[in-house]
Every structure is written in structure tokens, then in C-alpha cells.
């Protein structure tokens, strides 16, 4: 009988699994708006993880990070994207190449790859929840699947943002004491990405009256 993990590791694992599940939910969400809301929820879960780690490991800097990530990733970024969507007046996501069950199967395969790869590194430590690390790797990979398989600008933007969430989970569980400057640099990166994707959304919608990227295939000539 394998022993149950400690409470700290258990909470970290549950949070990581929740982040992975929201990633899968984004993959299948047919409405763009529900995708953005799922991203806000995912960011909230990551914020909770930061608070838990700050409390159990007594790292006060992480509280600052938690507040910053709450303001940015739960309120500001989803709000901005939702506003862009309201201006664009498009509800449904672009149809993806594959049906939902096939997408989920591919994503399951990819996340299994991520989990087994991290598992084969044999990182073992009592202080480190290795499961959360492996699941974070799976989150990053599934975010890539989301970016690749969904054919609209918003899904790709949200995929990119949630990729950052996966990286945050990994950095929080592996290097909780990472200097605040580095973490804030991550968030700044995210802000730049939001601006870039916002411009892309506006320009693309302005030119083709749609958020789908299928038209862009014609550039291949």
C-alpha cells in the first residue's frame, strides 16, 4: 500500500491537478468567453497555491507575488480579453481540426508523456512535491496542444497565458524562494504578451471580421 502524501504535498498535488483539469476544460470549451473565465479560475487556483506555500514555508515575499498575480491574472488580464471580445462581437470559438474526444485523447497522451518524462528524471525529495512538478509539465504540454489545435486567436492567447500558469506552478513548487524580481519579470512578460495578443486580436478582427485563424492559411501561397 503506497502511503498517502503529507498535507503540504497533498495540497500542492491537488492544486496542480486542478490546474491541469482547467487546462483540459479550456481545450473543450466551445465559447470564447467561458475559456477566458476558465483562465481566470485557473489563475485563482495558482494564486491559492502561492498563498499556501507562503504560509507553510514562511516566505513572506510570496504573499506579494500572490497579490500581484491575483490582480493581474484573475482580474486585469481576463477583464481586458473579455472587453476585447465584447468589442469583437464574436462568441463561438473557431472550429478546431479535430472533434472534442480526439482532442482530449491527444491531450491525455501528451500529458502522460510529460508526467512520465519528469518521472524518469528521478527527482525525489521530501520537501518537494514531485507529483506537482510532473503535473505542471503536463499543463505546459496541454497548453501547447490548445495553441496548436484550436484555430482562433483568443484560444491561442489563452493557451499562451495558461502556459505561464503551468510554469508558475512549476516554479512555485520547485523554487518557492525564487527571488521576487524573477517572478515579477514573469508577470511582466505576461503583460507584454497581453498587449501583443490584444493588438493581434484587434488587427485580425479588423481585417477579416473574424477571430478564426483559418483564413491565415492562404498566406502560404
Amino acid at each position: 500500500m503506497s502511503p498517502a502524501p503529507s498535507t503540504y504535498a497533498g495540497v500542492a498535488d491537488v492544486v496542480a491537478v486542478l490546474v491541469l483539469l482547467t487546462e483540459f476544460a479550456m481545450l473543450r470549451a466551445p465559447l470564447l468567453r467561458s475559456q477566458v473565465r476558465l483562465y481566470a479560475f485557473q489563475s485563482l487556483v495558482v494564486t491559492v497555491l502561492a498563498v499556501v506555500i507562503a504560509a507553510t514555508r514562511h516566505i513572506d515575499e510570496l504573499y506579494v507575488l500572490a497579490v500581484l498575480s491575483f490582480v493581474l491574472k484573475v482580474v486585469l488580464v481576463p477583464g481586458l480579453v473579455l472587453r476585447l471580445l465584447r468589442d469583437a462581437d464574436v462568441d463561438l470559438a473557431g472550429s478546431s481540426v479535430l472533434g472534442v474526444p480526439s482532442m482530449i485523447m491527444i491531450a491525455i497522451g501528451v500529458s502522460a508523456f510529460g508526467i512520465f518524462t519528469v518521472g524518469s528524471l528521478h527527482v525525489h525529495s521530501n520537501a518537494l512535491p514531485t507529483t506537482a512538478l510532473a503535473v505542471a509539465a503536463a499543463v505546459v504540454l496541454v497548453a501547447f496542444v490548445l495553441i496548436i489545435l484550436r484555430a482562433d486567436v483568443v484560444s491561442q492567447a489563452i493557451g499562451f497565458f495558461s502556459l505561464e500558469n503551468g510554469v508558475s506552478v512549476a516554479s512555485l513548487v520547485v523554487a518557492a524562494g525564487l527571488p521576487l524580481v524573477v517572478e515579477v519579470a514573469f508577470l511582466f512578460d505576461l503583460l507584454v504578451a497581453v498587449v501583443v495578443f490584444g493588438v493581434i486580436m484587434r488587427v485580425h478582427h479588423g481585417r477579416s471580421q473574424t477571430l478564426s485563424t483559418e483564413d491565415l492559411d492562404r498566406l502560404k501561397g
Partner: peptide
């Protein structure tokens, strides 16, 4: 199916 597979995967990842 996703939930059930994740349950098994999480075990293989060492935690669960």
C-alpha cells in the same frame, strides 16, 4: 476517462 487516466498518472508521478 480523462479523470480516471489522470488518477493513474498522478500515482505514477509518485504522489497521488
Amino acid at each position: 476517462f480523462l479523470l480516471a487516466v489522470l488518477a493513474v498518472l498522478v500515482f505514477y508521478a509518485g504522489g497521488g
